[in-house]
Design a protein around this nucleic acid. Structure first.
Lengths: 226, 226
DNA sequence: TAAAATATGTGCGCTATATCACATTATAAT
DNA sequence: ATTATAATGTGATATAGCGCACATATTTTA
């Protein structure tokens, strides 16, 4: 396992910022930094999980492979631990994670991670805080998808990219229409039609994957009303 | 705040079982045991959250009040911490919790709870383990609801009561048809029709809320196929 | 640069399911 | 016991959105 120098890292997680020099050294000794290109699989569903994955930089999709279609659970940007719950308990990956942009991941030995939880209360608390926020976010997503109709879901996804991922009203989608549909939980065709509609109604300017939000207010209304 | 004697409690959570005498004493000093009857509100959505809620005995529904309809997120039986993620971070209840059966809840001061996380690594680790399992379960539920059609969702809910809650093929539903529909994410009418169908097809014997599973195998198939 | 493979757009019919309307039956309140 | 209230069942209707089929455009590979 390639060793990493965590002490010098300026992209530490909130939790790792609670660690002292000695703990950071230990962490580095049990940590492997790996780079991924778009499309590379970072975590493979159903595989044995022996490491905690910390997303140091980049963007990934968390997805689950069904019999036919792939369902995208969520899109996560750095910094974040990904698929943390899979690392505990049954030690099996419940989901896959695939890079959408060039991405750096630190794989941390799960026993070392546990040791840090046991020995550093501040670290443990930060992990719990992270998991709490993540879980509430997930619930929010699930409910949105459960209650809204297609147009609202697509509006949601666009606002998510604009506000959470890129902090800009102009951005290039990191996913295909098919993936966007899988994230919104709708069919590719419906997704396509809604993009056309948004473009015609001057809510978006759509140029392939290049998106500009023209009518933010209306888009929000659509997202809220469902 | 009524004091509780946690040392003598034989319904301790996995986490609390990691505590020593002194810690259990402290816990008891910052803990109020309260009883609820079916229909009683245990946690109110949007209210300020100052306590962690431990479900010592009984059964509750976790739900979110929409503008018109109520969506039931999940049903949780004792022993379990409920709405834990709401207690951290923004300290606001994101969901409501309502008793479905006579229920006992221990409200634990959140600062005491944090203190235990900071000071006892085994306690912290158990909490993380609990949250991990709970989150994976939630994901599973969300995905089911996202991908299955109505008949599969209803089959799911019935199997959930039989296998997870009551461990029996004969049981009395603790919820109305309307609530069951809100849990499955479908309309009351559709739910009603599916019950009739299951009864006609001799998959279930339905007598109001009294349910007997007659054809477990078929019910599982329906649940899996969606 | 050509060819193959993906990705995307769009018309059309079908079906699952929500919703309305109302009858009927339980349950709670007086 | 009797009324009021809530819960449940069921027919009829409307429609959102899926899936198919195929055209077109874009990207990748050879």
């Amino acid at each position: 396992m390639n060793k990493t120098i965590c002490q010098l890292c300026n992209l530490k997680s909130d939790a790792a910022q609670q660690l002292n020099e000695a703990e950071l050294f230990m962490l580095g000794e049990n940590c492997a930094e790996t780079h991924f290109q778009p499309g590379d699989i970072i975590i493979k569903q159903d595989a044995h999980s022996t490491n905690v994955a910390y997303l140091k930089s980049g963007l990934v999709k968390i997805h689950i492979e069904g019999s036919i279609k792939d369902k995208i659970i969520k899109i996560t940007k750095a910094p974040a631990y990904i698929c943390l719950p899979s690392s505990f308990g049954d030690k099996k990956n419940h989901f896959s994670a695939t890079a959408l942009e060039p991405t750096t991941v630190c794989f941390i030995n799960v026993d070392m991670f546990k040791k840090l939880i046991y020995e550093n209360g501040d670290f443990a608390y930060q992990i719990i805080l992270d998991m709490s926020k993540s879980e509430l976010q997930n619930f929010h997503n699930c409910l949105n998808n459960a209650q809204k109709q297609n147009i609202g879901r697509v509006a949601d996804v666009i606002l998510f990219f604009a506000n959470i991922i890129y902090n800009s009203n102009t951005f290039r989608l990191p996913v295909t229409r098919e993936e966007l549909a899988a994230l919104a939980g709708i069919s590719r065709e419906s997704c396509s039609r809604i993009f056309t509609e948004f473009n015609n109604d001057k809510i978006l300017e759509v140029n392939g994957r290049q998106i500009t939000i023209l009518n933010d207010k209306l888009l929000r209304q659509i997202s809220e009303k469902g």
